[in-house]
Simulated scan of single mutants.
Amino acid sequence: MSGTPEGDAGQVTPHTDQPAGGDGPARGESLADLLGGRGGAIDATLPPLAFAAGWLVGGESLWAGVGAALAVGAAVAGVRLRRGDRPRSVLIGLLAVCVAALIAVRTGRAENFFLIQLLSNAASALAWAVSIVVRWPLLGVLVGAVLGQRSRWRRDPALLRAYGRASWVWTVTYVLRVAVFVPLYLGGQVLALVVARVALTWPLVAAALAVSWVVLRRSLPPGHPGVRHPVSEDRPAGDPAAKPGA
């Protein structure tokens, strides 16, 4: 994973609902609607599962595991391209599988297929934590980019604070993965790494999307128009000029 909620999550399609007055974010809308993530997270678990299957069927053969992972990774990339995911995102996901396979083959250690995953989660945990400290929480950066707000959301103190609090949820997910992966990796527990990879990918992403959305909503003050309508300090929440496109 990269420094984003499932960096290989594929194409992001902004939701089109309008915010309900005084009810924070739009009614019925969620981070899953804004950012996607679950589908890409599920896709990301398929190559590691294929690696484990090939490794076992081949009598703990690295080549069998790598071949299965590459085949499934290519198939997933093809499906994602056909369903309209961004080519860059698809290629990054496929490249990650190729690099993981190469590291495993070159070192002769099956657990090294998961080294990229471990390192990327450690880097992501650091990136998310730093982004909060420097008041550029990555959740705000991502949602702001999807909604075409650029950095306008940062001029809303309440929204900036809410994004910071919600970003800690994602930081914790990356820290949790590292805490689980490191002892399994050091112990060479290949099958346990696969189980952890699946359990801590799409279920954890789904949970983080839901929890961070709740934190975001509850962190906004009553009457705030929501993430789609940042309120600048010099513009009250009821000012039409604060609305996008006004």
Rank of each mutant, 00 (worst) to 15 (best):
P236C: 09
D239A: 11
K243M: 11
V215M: 02
V211S: 02
L220G: 01
P221E: 06
P230K: 01
V214C: 08
P240F: 03
A242Y: 01
P240V: 03
S212K: 07
G238Q: 02
L216K: 02
R217L: 06
A241D: 14
V214H: 12
R228I: 00
A237Y: 01
V215T: 06
D234S: 15
A207F: 10
A242S: 15
P244S: 06
D239M: 08
P230G: 01
A210F: 10
G238M: 00
A207I: 11
V214W: 13
S232C: 13
L216M: 14
R218N: 12
P221C: 04
P221K: 06
P222F: 07
G223I: 01
P236I: 06
P244V: 07
P244Q: 07
S232Y: 11
P230W: 05
A241P: 10
V215P: 01
K243N: 12
G223W: 00
S212M: 07
A241V: 11
P225N: 02
P236F: 06
A208M: 06
D239I: 04
L209R: 04
A210S: 10
A207V: 13
L204P: 02
G223L: 06
V205T: 14
L209N: 03
V211R: 01
H224F: 03
V205I: 14
R218P: 08
S212I: 07
D234V: 12
V214R: 14
V211P: 01
E233D: 15
P236K: 10
P240R: 03
V205P: 05
V215S: 05
V215K: 00
R228N: 09
P236D: 13
V215D: 04
A206K: 10
L220H: 02
P236E: 13
V205S: 08
P222I: 06
S219P: 09
R228F: 09
R235G: 05
S219D: 13
D234T: 14
D234N: 13
S232E: 14
R235A: 12
G226T: 03
A206F: 07
E233C: 11
V214P: 00
G223F: 00
L209W: 09
R228V: 03
V205W: 00
A241G: 15
D234Y: 12
D239L: 07
H224L: 03
G223K: 04
S232M: 12
P244M: 08
A210E: 09
L216S: 03
A207Q: 07
V231F: 04
R235C: 10
L204W: 05
D234G: 11
P225W: 00
A208I: 04
R217C: 07
W213K: 02
R217K: 12
R228D: 15
V205C: 04
L220E: 02
V215Q: 03
P244I: 04
L216T: 03
E233H: 13
V215Y: 01
A206C: 09
K243E: 14
G238N: 05
A237P: 10
L220Q: 01
D239E: 07
G238A: 07
S212G: 09
R217A: 11
R228L: 10
L216F: 05
P236R: 13
L209V: 05
A242M: 08
R228G: 09
A208E: 04
R235L: 15
A210L: 11
W213F: 15
A206H: 11
P222S: 08
A241I: 05
A206L: 15
K243V: 13
P240T: 06
P240Q: 11
V215G: 02
P236T: 12
